[in-house]
Design a protein around this nucleic acid. Sequence first.
DNA 1: TCACCTCTCTACAGGACGTAGTACTACCCC
DNA 2: GGGGTAGTACTACGTCCTGTAGAGAGGTGA
Lengths: 118, 118
Amino acid sequence: MKGLGELERSIMDILWAENAPLTAREVGRLIEDRDLAPTTVMTVLDRLSRKGFLTRTRDGRAWRYQPAASRDAYVAELMLEALDMTGDRDAALTRFAQAVSGTEAEILRKALTELGEE
Amino acid sequence: MKGLGELERSIMDILWAENAPLTAREVGRLIEDRDLAPTTVMTVLDRLSRKGFLTRTRDGRAWRYQPAASRDAYVAELMLEALDMTGDRDAALTRFAQAVSGTEAEILRKALTELGEE
DNA sequence: TCACCTCTCTACAGGACGTAGTACTACCCC
DNA sequence: GGGGTAGTACTACGTCCTGTAGAGAGGTGA
């Protein structure tokens, strides 16, 4: 998987936050604080779908874009990818476990416990 | 934190694998399969220390480079960084927990348990 | 038909990286 | 002591990615 640029991520954030597939115009409106040219938004949406982060379907002449995967899935995948980078996954995992905060350690523990029960 | 390029990572891998600080020449010898000019290795080592991935100390006229952090720490940090990207850390963590393989889930569980005992 | 929307194509600047040459300095051997 | 050698710093260049956007084409409604 490739990383995302800053604008790309802003746009993914918008689409992840929204539940419905959006057109370029709609995304542009939601990102208004940056005052981007409409084509800029379109270009980025296009690149994102080319990279597989978005899927798009026709709606009249316009395209509607929506995330190909949930943000959680994306984040989890990034984490796994980082993990793949090491020779010693166990050490890295241990380190990671030590680094997450208390509440999050709790979440992780619970998720793992539920796993074990399946 | 910034990501690493491909050559940068090869070089970090070498330095992570080695326990002693190496000179550019030594790194170059260890990476021989690529047949790089000595200055290429030096440039990359230099960039890596500029980015904070390496520290260097003088050894006569030469520099000796060593990782500023362990690979595990680096990987763990990458993972945390990915985690920071999401609005809903819990969901991402849960997702992650579900994605790691059984053995690794075990490792994680153990690390978390030990945490709890401290 | 005219204004408009949306698309696709093309472009360009800036930064990161891989790659390396050049020029300068210090050191060792003959 | 002079030349080769090793090591450094500085500079450079091509490529790819990303942010940014214009130009042109083809529908669409008034």
